[in-house]
Write a protein that binds this DNA or RNA. Sequence first.
DNA 1: CGGTAGATTGAATAGTATCAAAATCAGTGG
DNA 2: CCACTGATTTTGATACTATTCAATCTACCG
Lengths: 243, 243
Amino acid sequence: MERPVTRQSDAELLRGVALFEGLTDAQRGEVIDRSRVRRVKAGAVLFRQGGAATTLFVPLEARVRVTELDPTGHEVLLRFIGPGQMLGGMAGLERATYPVTATVVDEGRVMSWSNEAMQRLLERHPRLARNTMRLMVARIRELQQRCLELATQHVEQRVARTVLRLIRQAGRRTDRGILLDLPLSRQDLAEMTGTTLFTVSRLLARWTQQEIVEVGRRRVVLRNPHALVAIADDLPDREAASG
Amino acid sequence: MERPVTRQSDAELLRGVALFEGLTDAQRGEVIDRSRVRRVKAGAVLFRQGGAATTLFVPLEARVRVTELDPTGHEVLLRFIGPGQMLGGMAGLERATYPVTATVVDEGRVMSWSNEAMQRLLERHPRLARNTMRLMVARIRELQQRCLELATQHVEQRVARTVLRLIRQAGRRTDRGILLDLPLSRQDLAEMTGTTLFTVSRLLARWTQQEIVEVGRRRVVLRNPHALVAIADDLPDREAASG
DNA sequence: CGGTAGATTGAATAGTATCAAAATCAGTGG
DNA sequence: CCACTGATTTTGATACTATTCAATCTACCG
């Protein structure tokens, strides 16, 4: 039901967006003028792997899953994009296709820019270009890190690390521990770590027994972060679970 | 033996460098003025993981290995950088540290820019900024692809793919087949694919028996690309090895 | 209250890692 | 030219992690 968006409220919102950091209010205004804001529902697809890369997105409230399908049909869950993060960065540069699929998890608003608009903005505002590069460098580093993990670590460590990373990104304190505030199935975790839902299930079962986590249907609560970090770092630190 | 570098000869060299594509001769001249060129020997270290990221490099002839060491001491060989490619892109943007180590494989010249110089060039020339982004996007895609492979494919496929990728990057036709023109040990291949040198050795032995490759000490010659592609794609295409 | 997506569990198996030992090769210096 | 040295590679035996497949169970939704 597209409620109208005032310049002011959005200028406010953009203040927290890394991509627009350091821009003047006037510049931010220009960025907003060229943008489009729309509300998306859970399950909606922002873009599909293989589709023409025409648009760059920044979720305002919505959260988005980024997945890639390999030729053999195996799906991998690459990451979750939260409010203020950039999505579809390959657009605005090349006449290319999206290498991944972006699906909305949480309803909310999403800002977007066309290829050409973003191109023009980038040329006009070096600071914007710099921010973009900064974000890309961060992505590259993150991906390198992940390759390293996939190449050298065992499944248990990888799953532990992934849970910790997600907790950092979407953790919410509760009385029972830190809730991973994101509907995350065993399958999802498996796709993020390069394993199977069976193995993830077994791991979570073991961790539950060790009172490190508490799990439910698409739900994880971290009770003993320290112990999970120990697993992630492969310290032979088991059994020290008190505190 | 630092032989003097004329503007003209280097302007010529920069013509093939993706990072400087589309710049005018004048702009290229400015880029060169701000650069430093030096000759490096095999084994030299351009920068070390953890060191302050102060410089961006573009090899002119030299080739460079990029490796990352994980906290547990496991090393991963991320990639080889050839002439004209960019290296150390995280510099020129942030006051950060290199996340990887860059070691020279082949003697040759290397061009470099200080953090500040590149920063200024990027601000002055939107086209340069655009090129940088384009290269970063390519890196991101490549890394995503690699994560996908590491997450979903078996060792044999990964090794096959890696060999094919390297062949594409550094293959040289010979009478015996396509020589992988790069000193590459079993250990190196293992580090690129997230496995052990033992497994790589066994795979190469099997492929040799199938007359797909011919191997020696730090040497690989691809005799039957088609068969290796079949392995990489996990086609049950074995035994069709003739022609 | 039944239907269904999600999760658990067990048993069998495959794929790789690990470790130890021996073989091979490229240099190097006698 | 040959023996020596060290790096690289091969090979075998064994252990173990993680996958696969099948069956069952559970929670939630309409």
